[in-house]
């Protein structure tokens, strides 16, 4: 595992809190995501992991605190503008477009298509090249994830595991992603495939310099692919460090045994 630079993180979360009624989902969370590395965020169910992803991707507004991306305060920015800055996310419960085919779902992940205009859409020449390239990339991803046979099917015909893979394929389609947030990408996936997916994450991180924040329920499978880790419990960060350090942290052992 490479060295991580925590002095100059790509994403900086400071004092973020979020309440749902009386329930405190996030309590004064500080989190730094080191640039170009794979960072794990682990914690038991209900610890606030998804809420944190929602706050980072702009789906939820925090009740307190701020989120900085590449030194810029993005706390009030809507999701689509964060995407344009290079923040891409996946959903824990795959949030796919049910009337689109599997291939179309993946293609939505590719931004900047010049054919997405009410006028430009009718001029095939303007967007055909982009579309062709995007489709090739999408099919390559689908092939890697073993989804090529179902490329033209509706998402309703897919199994739960296949949906997770599709969500993964879609969230890695962006042209210039800087930070990809993967919300439980290997939950419900066969262990062998889970290793392949995490290896791909590792590979993308090293070769393309993309930063990943991977949210997982448990640490065991994912640890070997990560550079850094945080543990979240009841809305607070309870441990951080290398995956090994976090794994052996007594507080964490207690939480998981108590779980």
């Amino acid at each position: 595992m490479g060295q991580v630079d925590l002095e100059n993180p790509i994403l900086r979360v400071r004092g973020v809190s979020k309440y749902f009624g009386k329930l405190k989902a996030l309590d004064n969370v500080d989190l730094d995501v080191p640039r170009g590395a794979v960072t794990l965020l682990i914690g038991p169910n209900g610890s606030g992991k998804t809420t944190l992803v929602n706050v980072i991707s702009g789906v939820l507004q925090p009740d307190g605190g701020r989120v900085e991306f590449e030194g810029r305060d993005i706390t009030g920015l809507p999701p689509h503008e964060r995407f344009k800055l290079g923040i891409v996310r996946s959903y824990q419960i795959p949030r796919l477009f049910p009337s689109l085919s599997v291939l179309e779902n993946v293609l939505i992940g590719r931004d900047g298509n010049p054919g997405e205009g009410m006028v430009s859409g009718i001029f095939r020449g303007l967007w055909e090249g982009h579309e062709l390239k995007a489709t090739e990339d999408a099919l390559a991803k689908l092939k890697f994830l073993g989804l090529l046979e179902v490329a033209e099917k509706k998402t309703s015909e897919l199994s739960g595991g296949q949906l997770k893979l599709l969500e993964m394929a879609r969230s890695t389609m962006s042209l210039r992603p800087k930070l990809i947030l993967l919300d439980e990408p290997i939950a419900g996936v066969l262990p062998s495939l889970a290793h392949e997916i995490l290896a791909l994450v590792r590979k993308m991180s090293i070769e393309l310099g993309i930063t990943f924040l991977v949210v997982e329920h448990r640490l065991d499978i994912a640890a070997q692919y990560a550079d850094y880790a945080y543990a979240l419990h009841l809305g607070s960060i309870v441990a951080k460090g290398t995956p090994q350090e976090v794994m052996t942290n007594p507080k964490l052992v207690e939480i998981y045994i108590g779980d």
């Binding site: 991707s57 702009g58 789906v59 809507p78 999701p79 689509h80 503008e81 995407f83 344009k84 891409v88 996310r89 959903y91 949030r95 796919l96 477009f97 049910p98 009337s99 689109l100 939505i108 992940g109 931004d111 997405e116 879609r170 962006s174």
Partner: peptide, 13 residues
């Protein structure tokens, strides 16, 4: 139409 929210996290305004 299917899910405007998910689409907005894919960069569409």
């Amino acid at each position: 139409r299917d899910d405007e929210f998910a689409l907005s996290t894919y960069g569409r305004d």
